[in-house]
Write a protein that binds this DNA or RNA. Structure first.
Lengths: 325, 325
DNA sequence: CCTCTCATCGCTCATCTGAGCGTCAACAAA
DNA sequence: TTTGTTGACGCTCAGATGAGCGATGAGAGG
């Protein structure tokens, strides 16, 4: 908390370090140490305090991944999440694909770890989710369900249509894909497709989902594939309704409320309600421009685990504390 | 204490790290953390314990010098010293002059720090003490007293005869040198010199000493300049009396008892008793071959501060614990 | 189905610990 | 000299903590 006081002398430093070693590493009680040194336990407590304040003893974390435990915990408690994984800043100028890869790797490890054979896992449509599945090598035998239709554009090229079936192959469980576009021209077409055998079967799985991995998009250019796929008129109309964030083509306002717009009726995707029912929703959202969107989605209470980077985490925390303090 | 248990999962690790951060860095109580996480305080305690045991949280020491705090503390309490400074192992194959330089630097910093204007500082004749004085740049104005005569041999070449006057120049205090050899041919010559004006004056200071810096020599070849300067017959005679260590040409047996041999009467040096009276005796002793000698001298109870290296410290500790356990 | 094992969890109680306060000594100003 | 200021120290007591114990539950084997 407080800044470095005076640097302490060599002799005092060694004594303080020895005491700290006994206390923190060997776990002796302060009373015990006090007796060994012929000092009062208060003196020992003060030495330990000043040793920590002066930075003489540091507590380091050897996490199995480059995660910032302090930020993770702050984020977790600020939004009442079950878990938060905040990736440490890596290089000063990490490119977006590099960051996405690291976020995906983290999500992959988490999913591999927490998935059980009784799970039904849903995946939304996003580059980061795609990158995640590429980094999963083992998974219990459980069904993999696609949460929304196929996004037109670059996704086709990197074969992300195979995300769900690919993961199902690794898992050995059933695959429930949606071979149809995410955004459709009108409501009627949407409902027709919605009733197609394969698609209806996938939609039927939504109520059984136990885990979902989704990506958070911001309602602005290049920060949401759904945004990018709409016409300027539609984008603006939705912006005017207060849309800030998008998850699986479902929209949220700044307060995290589900936003029902015209778009709602011509996308093939899991509904707000169904997604909210999923016990474990792992949301991926990274980079500063998405902080506001991450904030909005977290406020919806839908997310149980957030995986993000340090920049976005700090910005989101600033928003959250701005509301409180 | 105990070895690494299982490595813990990613999710648990992050939780444990967050809890450890709250506890160790932010200083929250376990009860507080337990409430924040909806866990019992016992659970928190167990998480913290296993986090430390598994090495997930590490306590690091940022000492102003490369000192091993754990070894220092063990050594300090094993021998009932006031202070112990154990230099961390540097390179795998550090040469003796390099090690001596680092030991000297440490002693220099310590002496600079603890010396006050009311001190009377004694220096024994040794390469490490000489190296120490070279690295002292400031010292309160106090008298500097030479504790023993000049050792013949290589010391002359590196101008270590000037050690005392050099340090006195830095300090601004009086210098009490001994311009006479340490080992003399017979008792009569020794006593004659002992009564010479300058030398007598220096010897007169011995009872006023408040601090002394001495080097520990082992009674074997190349580990004691006094040993090296004697004839084989004398060396062996003294060895047979049980000599293990030498400090300022005064001998100690393995139990740390003062050893009175024929040598005692033809050296110009402070006596065992006078040295024992000095409130603060800083002893320098390093490298493995000297461990037994260091052990012996520490057992004498004469030393208040030991400065050594990790190898010697470990070996000495093995000797000490061998006697107890 | 039972029963055993193994691990986890949270309780009690004796001990340990922190916040706040009063005492004391050192030192500077009056 | 006295008086005020500052910092170090250790006391009290309420609150936090650890050791040990029995309860509970999941999974293995009968």
């Amino acid at each position: 908390m407080s800044a470095q006081r005076r640097p302490l002398g060599l002799s005092d430093s060694v004594q303080a370090a020895s005491i700290a070693h006994r206390f923190y590493v060997r776990g002796e009680s302060k009373l015990e140490i006090a007796e060994a040194y012929g000092l009062s336990r208060f003196k020992i407590a003060r030495i330990l305090d000043s040793a920590r304040e002066s930075g003489l003893v540091r507590v380091e974390f050897d996490l199995p991944a480059p995660i910032d435990p302090a930020l993770s915990d702050e984020l977790r408690s600020a939004y009442g999440l079950q878990r938060a994984l905040v990736l440490e800043r890596a290089k000063p100028n990490e490119t977006r694909p590099e960051l996405r890869r690291r976020i995906g790797a983290l999500a992959a490890r988490l999913l591999t770890e927490i998935a059980t054979k009784d799970d039904v896992i849903g995946l939304s449509w996003a580059r980061s989710v795609n990158v995640m599945t590429e980094q999963i090598s083992t998974l219990p035998r459980c069904p993999i369900v696609q949460l929304c239709g196929v996004q037109a554009g670059m996704d086709m090229r990197d074969r992300s249509v195979e995300t769900v079936s690919g993961l199902a192959r690794i898992s050995g469980g059933d695959a429930y894909p949606i071979y149809a576009p995410l955004v459709l021209p009108d409501r009627r077409t949407t409902e027709t497709l919605r009733r197609q055998p394969g698609i209806a079967e996938t939609f039927g799985q939504f109520r059984s989902l136990t885990k979902a991995v989704v990506s958070i998009g911001a309602w602005q250019e290049n920060e949401s594939t759904v945004y990018d796929s709409l016409s300027p008129a539609e984008r603006d109309a939705i912006s005017k309704r207060g849309a800030r964030a998008e998850v699986a083509a479902r929209l949220f306002d700044a307060e995290g409320n589900a936003l029902s717009t015209g778009l709602s009726h011509h996308v093939l995707a899991i509904s707000h309600e169904e997604l909210h029912q999923v016990p474990e929703v792992i949301a991926l959202g990274y980079t500063t421009p998405k902080a506001e969107a991450v904030d909005a989605v977290l406020r919806s209470g839908m997310v149980s685990t957030l995986i993000t980077d340090a920049d976005a985490a700090r910005d989101a925390l600033a928003l959250a504390s701005g509301r409180r303090g």
